[in-house]
Amino acid sequence: MSQVERESRREERRVTLNLMRNLTLREIRAQYKRTFLGRVWSLINPLAQIAVYSIVFGLLFQLPVAPGTNSGLEVFPLWIGVGVIVWGFISGSVAAGMSSMLDNAGLLTKVYFPRSVLPVSSVLSSSFNFGIELLVLLAVMALVGGPLVLLYAPLLVPLLVLTFAFVLGISMVLSVASIYFRDLRHLWSIFSQVWMYASGVLFSVELVRERQEAFAADGVDLPLVAIFQANPAERFIEAYRNILYDFAVPTWDIWVTLLIWSAASLIVGKLVFDRLARDIVEEI
């Protein structure tokens, strides 16, 4: 009997994996169907953002950015490029992941399959785009900053896995929560704006440290840097910048922080999802 059960469980897992794969492919294939530029669009968007931010914050505001530790790079657009692309993934994949359940309401009410397949495949397809963007970024860095970056490139793999887990946990919570509260989608677009600025996409921690020191000189003790760095998104972007801009290994405390955040996000996400997704069909 247990043999049969094990067999059927393995079969079920195979079916689920196949479904996940096909849903992910559907997202990836359908996204740029019938557009003239096709997949190139996924690169044009961040490029445009990088251009705008570089002009405003690099050229006009002259924001100070420390040169890359090992690379010696001092190219503001590249520095901001890492932030824009990583942040684009975090906010974009959460937005897509959170609507994955509502968008597939027709499927949920008509067919049974493990419900978590939907947010997972949504985040997977976002990760696919993110992967391509990272490769392009890596190529540009190697061209501008030298081939040293390739030595550190393998570190992107575990980092990508951690980012995936972090984003997936949030997406799972929001995908079911947004069915109970439809406002969440709109709320998220506001929140992600705030979160972007709080994550140091556009300015470096140096700016925050300067402000903290200025306050301290006035006798006001505000742990601005600590607060700034308590933000997991900031830590993620910092780690990507370490690798891609500084050509360095992120410090161990960054790795530990990211690991904790990812694990916590995934565990909470799974718990909330399992609890709320059970009767989701009745609420759609």
Binding site: L23, R26, F113
Partner: peptide
């Protein structure tokens, strides 16, 4: 998915219905 071909949809729909 309306934008995908019949072939792609057969694979997609089949996997939704539980085929390997």
């Amino acid at each position: 998915h309306p934008e995908l071909s019949g072939r792609e949809n057969v694979y997609l729909n089949g996997s939704i219905l539980g085929m390997t």
